[in-house]
């Protein structure tokens, strides 16, 4: 039971990280109609920036904030140089061009930071654990991740649903030409949204870094899961992304934790140890196939209604 609670918290934490990544993807898709395979690169760049800045400044928080700023600038630069030219193109072009960007960034990281991965050391205060229930102690850092993830999710909801900028973003998603005709600089809005997506992705990367490691290709593994999230949630829908991210995070984490034990019940231990992670990875895709079979537009279709 305690293990289940602990794993559910891990699932929540992974789900929130996924949401940060998926929110940027779904915003960019919903508003600019752009499929961005390079979104995972921003996640990776965020983590590498943080690794460097934390070493330079010797402070986790300061380093992370600097990394977020750098990620925003990088996002804006990518939008201005490459992505801007792609809006008028079809999805196949998006896939190809951003696939090119992804290869470029992976190689760039290998050139600048070297092929070996980095680890980010947590400051002492975060590197402890809290006793949530008698017998259940949980790492403080993961709680902080849940807290930050939850706050950012709420902030994003507030930004999109309650502010003037959010109103413009929503208007841009439903009818971009009309928004332009009403005198809103749609190009600037797009750049801003792309930059925002970059910051969210980088934040996810920075927060994931101390738990996993910073490595080349870290963005791709999670990017595909984030795609699953936005497809399940309904592409373009923030609410859908939130619900789907928590679902996927929970299923993936709990599956990984309990499948080996379940499988050991009826097969040899090494076989179960190999099969379980593969099966756990598959769960998410099976969920997606099921949902798309039943509702081809995802759970919360943003565009039809």
């Amino acid at each position: 039971m305690l293990l289940l609670i602990e794993q559910s918290l891990n699932g929540l934490q992974f789900g929130l990280l996924l949401f940060l990544l998926a929110a940027g993807l779904t915003l960019v898709f919903g508003i600019m109609d752009l499929v961005n395979l390079a979104h995972g690169s921003l996640y990776m760049m965020g983590a590498y920036f943080a690794a460097t800045f934390i070493t330079w400044t010797d402070s986790f928080v300061l380093g992370a904030v600097l990394a977020l700023g750098a990620a925003f600038l990088l996002g804006v630069a990518i939008e201005l140089v490459a992505v801007r030219t792609l809006y008028a193109r079809d999805h196949l072009d998006h896939v190809l061009a951003t696939f090119g960007l992804l290869l470029f960034f992976n190689e760039l990281v290998r050139l600048v930071w070297g092929p070996a991965g980095r680890t980010i050391q947590l400051p002492g205060i975060l590197n402890t654990s809290v006793e949530l229930l008698p017998g259940l102690s949980y790492p403080t850092y993961r709680l902080v991740v849940i807290l930050v993830g939850g706050l950012v999710a709420f902030g994003l909801y507030w930004l999109v649903a309650r502010t003037r900028t959010g109103m413009r973003i929503r208007a841009g998603a439903s009818d971009r030409e009309m928004v332009g005709a009403l005198g809103i600089d749609i190009r600037k809005l797009y750049t801003l949204v792309f930059g925002l997506g970059a910051v969210l992705a980088a934040l996810a990367g920075i927060m994931a870094a101390p738990i996993t490691t910073v490595s080349i290709g870290m963005g791709e593994r999670i990017l595909i899961v984030a795609f699953v999230v936005i497809v399940i949630g309904g592409i373009g829908s923030i609410r859908g992304a939130f619900v789907a991210a928590l679902m996927v995070g929970m299923i993936d984490t709990v599956g990984r934790a309990f499948l080996p034990e379940i499988l050991r019940g009826f097969m040899s231990v090494p076989a179960a140890n190999t099969l379980a992670p593969a099966l756990a990875s598959m769960l998410v895709y099976i969920l997606m196939a099921l949902i798309l079979f039943l509702r081809p537009q995802g759970l919360f279709p943003a565009r039809s209604g």
């Binding site: 896939v95 795609f227 497809v231 099966l279 895709y285 196939a289 798309l292 081809p296 995802g298």
Partner: peptide, 27 residues
Amino acid sequence: RTRGVYFIMITLAFAQLVYFVGVGLYA
């Protein structure tokens, strides 16, 4: 049954599914 970007994503997801089947082929 799906269109456009959903088609891209779902074919990708099925490919990942089979990829992990390959990874899980312990024998």
